[in-house]
Design a protein around this nucleic acid. Structure first.
Lengths: 235, 235
DNA sequence: CCTTGTGAAAAATTTCACAGCG
DNA sequence: CGCTGTGAAATTTTTCACAAGG
């Protein structure tokens, strides 16, 4: 859609933050905002805000700033949140269930369409109106239902296999909650054939609670090394 | 401890990954490894591994590589994971309880010493052997018990206040699970005095599931913009 | 001969100054 | 005048080539 290239991944994270802020402003009926406002609320510089937005277009009016609903709409579009996303959850233990029940996902047209696990005790039970199926059925399921992403909430030792199953089934994006690096290539594993070249093009994003905890430990011990955002937020 | 400065935050994230990999290697009784091995397993370049480690010392032997237990021990030390961390959880709803029950935190001497919430229905109940207290008691609690970090698992609209409570109580690190930017400065809030200058020096790390989901949406839509790690991992 | 550790080069990202336009 | 949008400068981070050392 946009032929743009070389956009920092940090920019994408910040766009998500700006969007959240705009939703807050809209909820308070604020009509207009500026790069400086957004910068204060996001904890970055106003330069950064403008540069981030400039990668995707011109959304403001010189001399006036940004119209909240317009900028919000544009960010929704840029991030792909103005469309429906069908999601399966693989791993329906405590974490998987917490994810399924976490409020806020539905606000963005994220719909859980399937739950999968290998634990016989869980299969057949219902969580949020969906029946838990065996992970072996993933492939058939994806064949008959559109699935845009998979959330991986299995124990670490099963994460690579489960990711492989998702990729083989044709799922294009994986949100990995397991504290493991998912290998995009088929890593040599004793005697196994190289399966699933569908790997090419599968995106993996990680959400890692344990890693966050450890990073925090480091920065509490070395506060001088932490990035506490810019000193000056105004230009 | 280390007078080193200017260490990329990305380096700290990668150190956490290397540590995890080393623990896996140790569990498989692998005695030695190399920057190339670690690079493959971490999905980065070998240059990167060596540079990351070099910020903190010389842990390898030229010609031989790294001794797994030694490098692991050094990374534990660097990250501050060879000591006990006392943690309180603020917000004991579904998410807070999932965090309290998540396995793996205890492996690193992270100990939950207190649970806090404002919901009367929860106060007094027990979760994992701890009694849930009212958040108002946080300050007294921190006065009598050492608390090194607080995990913030409250609804977004309460996150800033709860973070303020933690900071006022003297907690140095906050792991924020709420999809909100915690303001390190006391932002103008209708009529309230500027309280809690303890803010200076409080570290905030974020673990944001919804943001991960949205980033994934973007990259699934724009796969060409995703950083799929290096093409070549070998030197 | 192998693999680390590191100064220097290259690339990416952020900061900045100001032109552009309502 | 005010605030955005952006090319250029400054800074940060990564990549690289190779010296150092077992």
């Amino acid at each position: 859609m946009s032929g743009v290239t070389g956009i920092p991944t940090a920019t994408i994270s910040r766009l998500v933050t700006y969007l959240r802020i705009l939703e807050g402003l809209e909820a308070q009926d604020v009509a207009r905002t500026s790069s400086t406002d957004l910068a204060v609320l996001a904890g970055v510089t106003a330069f950064q805000v403008r540069k981030d937005l400039a990668y995707f277009g011109r959304f403001g009016t010189r001399g006036l700033g940004y119209t909240v609903p317009i900028l919000k709409r544009e960010l929704l579009r840029v991030l792909g949140l103005n469309q429906t996303w069908n999601v399966v959850i693989v791993g329906v233990g405590r974490l998987g269930q917490a994810i399924a029940n976490y409020p806020g996902a539905r606000d963005y047209q994220f719909q859980y369409v399937g739950l999968f696990d290998v634990n016989p005790a869980l299969i057949g039970t219902g969580v949020r109106g969906l029946t838990v199926r065996h992970t072996d059925e993933l492939r058939d399921f994806v064949g008959s239902t559109r699935v845009d992403m998979g959330f991986l909430a299995v124990p670490p030792e099963r994460a690579q296999d489960a990711a492989q199953s998702l990729a083989d089934a044709g799922v294009r994006g994986i949100l990995n909650f397991a504290p493991v690096v998912i290998q995009p290539r088929t890593v040599e594993r004793s005697g196994l054939q190289e399966i699933g070249d569908e790997w090419r093009g599968v995106i993996v994003e990680n959400v890692d609670f344990l890693a966050g905890m450890k990073r925090l430990a480091f920065y509490v011990l070395n506060p001088d090394l932490s990035t506490t955002g810019p000193e000056e937020i105004e230009e």
